[in-house]
Amino acid sequence: MKYATNNDLSKRLTAATEAKTAALNAFRKANSATDPDKLARLAERAAVTAAREDRRRERERVKLAEAKEVAERQAAADAAVQAEIDARQKAEQSMISRVIEDEAARKAARDARYANRKARIGR
């Protein structure tokens, strides 16, 4: 025989009801707000959450500080590049003005030579 005991329907229903009641009581006990174990777990969970939030804020602060430092370095590099560009443009303008002045001086000397030659020839 497979089953040695005789479990009729009423016994099985009673056992199922008792099991459901026991499970419900265990659930109520686990969810009880005055349970010291649960209070300890809740306090521990709150502490972990607070620590996690503190670490997140610290990471954000470090990230913002790094971003600010990168922006400052980029601004300094941009300023240096702009200063170099300005110096090159100034040097180029200076060279252009010297070339123009030299060209004007050569023209003036040529014109003076031409005027002297005309004066000697008598025209």
Rank of each mutant, 00 (worst) to 15 (best):
A15V: 01
R110T: 10
A83S: 07
V62H: 06
A40D: 05
A65R: 05
D54F: 06
S94Y: 09
T49D: 15
R120Q: 13
F27Q: 14
R120E: 15
D8E: 00
A76F: 02
R45T: 12
A75G: 00
K29T: 13
R56A: 14
V99L: 12
D54H: 10
R59H: 12
K38P: 01
T17C: 08
K20Y: 07
T49A: 15
M1W: 11
E103I: 03
R98F: 13
V70G: 04
E101N: 06
D102P: 02
D111V: 01
N116W: 06
I121A: 07
V81S: 09
R55Y: 10
M1L: 12
K118Q: 12
I85P: 00
A119S: 13
A43P: 04
A46D: 13
V48G: 11
A109F: 05
E60M: 08
T14K: 15
M1P: 13
E53D: 15
R61D: 04
K118N: 08
V70A: 10
I96L: 12
A43F: 05
K63G: 05
P36S: 03
E18M: 04
P36T: 03
R113H: 10
K90R: 10
A115S: 02
A104K: 13
A47R: 12
D35G: 03
A51D: 10
E69F: 03
D54M: 09
A80W: 00
A71E: 08
N25V: 13
A33V: 05
V48T: 14
V48R: 15
E18Y: 01
R123A: 06
D86I: 01
L39G: 15
I85H: 09
N25M: 10
D111Y: 00
D111C: 02
T5V: 12
D111P: 03
T21H: 02
L13S: 03
R45W: 08
R55G: 08
N6V: 09
A15R: 09
D8C: 01
K90S: 08
R123W: 09
A83M: 04
T14S: 09
R61T: 04
V70F: 09
D78Q: 13
E18G: 00
D35P: 02
R120D: 11
I85C: 04
A23E: 08
D35Y: 00
Q89C: 07
R45N: 09
A119R: 14
T21M: 05
E66Y: 02
A46P: 00
L39T: 11
E92A: 13
E58T: 04
E66W: 00
A80G: 00
K29V: 09
N6R: 08
A40R: 14
L24R: 10
A15M: 05
T14H: 03
A80T: 05
D102N: 14
